[in-house]
Design a protein around this nucleic acid. Sequence first.
DNA 1: CCCTGATTAAACATTG
DNA 2: TCAATGTTTAATCAGG
Length: 488
Amino acid sequence: MPCRSLDESDASMRQRLVNSLSQSFPHSALSKALQCIKEEEEENDPLSSSCFAELRLDKEAVDDDDDELTSLSWLQDSNLLKDIKAGEDDDSLKENSEVKHEHGFPHPSHVPYNPQKHINSKPPYSFSCLIFMSLEESPTKMLPVKDIYHWILSHFPYFQNAPTGWKNSVRHNLSLNKCFKKVDKDRGQTIGKGSLWCVDPDFRPNLLQALRKTPYHPYHQLQMLANPQPAQQNRYLQEFRPQPLAPRIGPNSISPHLFPFLSRRLGGSALDIDSDIKDVAQTLVSLKSWSKAKADNASFAQGLKRKLGELESPRKPRGPVICTENPSVDHTYSITHVEASEDEYVPGSPGSSIDDEYDFGSEEDIDDYSDDEDIDGLNPRHQFKCNSDNLDSEGESGVDEVDGCVSSGNSDSVRTPTKRARLDFGKRLRFEETSEEEKKKIADGADALLNLAGICLARQQTVPSCVEKLDGTNEYSDESDASSVEDS
DNA sequence: CCCTGATTAAACATTG
DNA sequence: TCAATGTTTAATCAGG
């Protein structure tokens, strides 16, 4: 919860609030905004007073005060608006707030979104996120298109009155978005027409990243599930009935009962940042070690063999998936992808599941995803704007080739650890072909960056563990990240 | 202004 | 045959 400066008087705050609202909601939306706040209070939701502000985007968390002023979140802890709301009829106000703008009008980004109430507001989630949520809510992590429709309809009544084109969009997304893939017919039960769809584990971190960037998602999603509407008849939800909201453990925490995957991935931005730092440091150290190893042919060959062994053996630690802040690599259609995955992929490899990495879901789910990878190589969807040329062209430069994992915007960030590790390995092989001068530059750069990263990591006392992991002898999980950070 | 992603519409193919 | 499903292309818009 952003803390308001105490030296700011209520009057000035109110004035600034009104100004801000007037600009943000020119069409009588002020009352709607107030109504939203009042509704939140009336529900006496334990989350409403503390959580959703922290669940704003990471970027917003570091935004300037102006952005905070435009956010209504901090008002939930204050009673500044009570006078304004006094005497207003709740029903009429709500009615007005929902009727006054046309159906399909985008939901104001500064108003907490409740899909069950703002049925005329177009959900602030992309179809990818909607599909992702539906699939994640499924116990089996896979759904036929029909059930995806159903989930969306039951959770976002907006679509009940929306033009039917949204279903087309859903199918379009499923087909075109590389994040989703069809489950092998053999594995899918006989569900009639069509296939089951699931999230491609390769891209699940990207979807999570995208979801996390969506304003107000976690809070309202949780709230929605905690107060299921009668319209919700999704059989998966009936089987997997949400539990009442547990008291929030702390700021920015998501109920693990309702959304285990969200509670982990959205639980704290600091953890992800730490993870990113570790990723960078890991890559840099690795890079340096390889450069150094080249100086000694014997040790180089040994290291090569060891690296190869690590990559070939199952259940070996892999490089971490990097969830980049770069929107171009979130979950889009045009992410650069490893074309050679069919050759590289080891069917049934336990390490192929990202659940392994993040400990998502159940054992069955892990198996599902592992097996699902069997069909990944057969799925031609990755052809969309797949930019393997980029990799090759970058390979000429040497530097980009090697520090691909360092750059948050690099396409490497979207691969499975296994695939990425293999690609990195291939890159390193090519790295060995670059000139000594280039390698020296790279090593120097790595040194410099490592020093920078070392400062951060040392601050959190995670350098030893991080570096220790570089030799591939230790696991690298979010859990350890979380614990290390929490300990510090 | 350009690029990219998201959305929407549409046409067409496939499937049960 | 039909409707649902899946694929693909294109146009449009918004945001960076």
